[in-house]
Nucleic acid binder design. Structure first.
Length: 154
DNA sequence: GCCAACGTTGGC
DNA sequence: GCCAACGTTGGC
């Protein structure tokens, strides 16, 4: 069982959007980075938990928790020419990109901002707070998971 | 809107 | 296989 942090721009897909989906479940499409693709294809498993992080917005930070409910499977939006994530080099026969299904679990009472994450010395190693980090999914250690959860319950 | 960071592409 | 150019991400 692993913990993760999934980034999304709330303009595109927010935690509120996820909570409003049927069964509060959605597929996490659009990853077009090989490192993250490998996580989705090989490492991330059902019952793993993930923080939902809002990026590229006035107050970036962690807004809640979701659960992974499928193993990785091909991101079919990559072979749809009408899709924003279309990649002509990805086909149904030879998929290049992967995704998982996620289910809403909890929205925090208040956002845990990037700024507050940076202030916590025990969270200094988190990949998400490194400048220039471009990974939309990063791993979270059990210790980090617990600290952040405690912050969220305050 | 700016710009730093860094992944990707493609010429050689 | 190197590396410059380019594109994208994302905080500010």
């Amino acid at each position: 069982m692993h913990y993760w942090l999934f980034k999304s721009e709330p303009n595109t897909f927010s935690i509120e959007d996820l909570a409003q989906k049927p069964a509060k479940t959605a597929y996490w499409d659009g990853v077009r980075n090989y490192q993250v693709r490998n996580l989705l294809r090989d490492i991330i498993k059902p019952s793993d938990l993930a923080f939902f992080y809002h990026s590229s917005c006035p107050s970036p930070g962690i807004v809640g928790i979701m659960e992974i409910i499928t193993a990785g499977y091909p991101d079919f939006t990559s072979w749809d020419p009408k899709s924003k994530g279309f990649d002509p080099k990805s086909t149904a026969d030879n998929p290049r990109w992967y995704m998982v299904d996620v289910r809403f679990r909890q929205k925090f009472k208040s956002i845990i901002t990037l700024e507050s994450l940076k202030k916590h010395c025990q969270l200094k190693k988190m990949i998400v707070i490194r400048p220039g980090n471009r990974l939309s999914i990063t791993s979270v250690t059990p210790e980090e998971w617990e600290i952040i959860n405690n912050l969220a319950q305050e």
